[in-house]
Design a protein around this nucleic acid. Structure first.
Ligand code: MN
Ligand code: MN
Ligand code: ZN
Ligand code: ZN
Lengths: 126, 126
DNA sequence: TCTAATTTTGCAACTCAATTGCATTAACAA
DNA sequence: TTGTTAATGCAATTGAGTTGCAAAATTAGA
């Protein structure tokens, strides 16, 4: 089950995602709201929001878990199949609105892809 | 610095990679050699082999670290840019000898890619 | 508005991969 | 054979993420 009750902690987390369309690591989120709620609460709110199709998760370069807003997903269908980009200089992570073609692989069935591009972002590559 | 001395522990680990051309998770490797060496030693040997360009590492679906043999890499240049495939049924991980085209991204500089395809392997998709 | 059901939260304890410090052992150049 | 120092074992530690449980907050309905 996803979100059932509208709590203050939920609004606080949601607002962070509304403010700026940028991915956030859980570690960073916990730091951002550490005066307002417990880290367990952050994990649980993120879980519920993902189940609802409000946000989606993926792993960053360092192994940390990241979350970002969804577009056009719902509780029973996550349609986020886009790649992500992580900047090695400022550590910012972006969702990339593009499709990467995966060639078919002999005798294999590909269900999903997990693509992280690493490099320098718009700001840091100048 | 990479490998300097040829130790028994090193040979044991190297032999595992020689035997079969398949990726191994560190957790599995530690289990395989647990009667012969300490887990810290496994981590350190893998580090040194990666520095030498003998093996390369990447993260699996579950967040664990995996290693596989390199082909044509050296101490100062890792040329492994291939994607990996992880089977959801048997958990086997393979290096895929294919190139995935990454479209250029406006104002971004892509240095490396981290591509994991998830699905069913040759054995499990039948 | 008040009550009761139940979802949500805080907190402490825990798990597990990975790392670190340090004393001891093993490799190998001379 | 010996001295140097790389490599190892071991115990402690780190840090992200999880779990159990009691207390608090939300919300539907009386
Ligand atoms: Mn995304
Ligand atoms: Mn590989
Ligand atoms: Zn940047
Ligand atoms: Zn399989």
């Amino acid at each position: 089950m996803g979100i059932v009750r509208k709590t203050k902690a939920l609004s606080t987390v949601l607002q962070i995602f509304e403010e700026k369309n940028e991915a956030k690591s859980v570690v960073h989120l916990i730091e951002l709201v550490k005066d307002k709620m417990n880290k367990t609460t952050v994990y649980r709110i993120l879980d519920r929001l993902e189940q609802d199709g409000t946000i989606h998760s993926f792993n960053g370069k360092d192994g940390l878990k990241w979350y970002a807003k969804c577009e056009g997903c719902s509780a029973n269908h996550h349609s986020d199949k886009h790649p992500h980009f992580q900047c090695t200089k400022c550590d910012k992570v972006e969702c990339l609105p593009l499709e990467i073609k995966i060639p078919s692989i002999k005798n294999h069935k590909v269900d999903s892809t997990d693509i992280l591009l690493i490099g320098q972002c718009e700001v840091c590559s100048m």
